[in-house]
């Protein structure tokens, strides 16, 4: 542990924000790919992706507010 940088908190922040920020953005993009494919499977996949994004947002709001 460093006195000036809380490395422990820092790497958690980095991992969490990469997963939530870049990861969920990618999942959202996949949903758009699914939607535009025109096939029923694509629509189902898109719906699943949107659900994942929504769940991520709810989880994010929950952990931020329930301090």
């Amino acid at each position: 542990m460093n006195d000036y940088i809380d490395l422990d908190a820092l790497w958690r922040v980095m991992v969490a924000s990469l997963v939530a920020g870049a990861g969920l953005a990618a999942v959202f993009s996949l949903a758009l790919v699914g939607l535009s494919s025109g096939r029923p499977a694509g629509k189902v996949g898109a719906a699943a992706c949107f659900l994942v994004v929504a769940a991520g947002i709810v989880l994010g709001l929950y952990v931020m507010l329930a301090k």
Binding site: A9, V13, A16, A20, G21, L24, G60
Partner: peptide, 14 residues
């Protein structure tokens, strides 16, 4: 998305 994620994470992990 990146801003929201980083802000949420930093506020959660202090």
């Amino acid at each position: 998305s990146s801003s929201a994620a980083v802000i949420f994470a930093s506020s959660h992990f202090g």
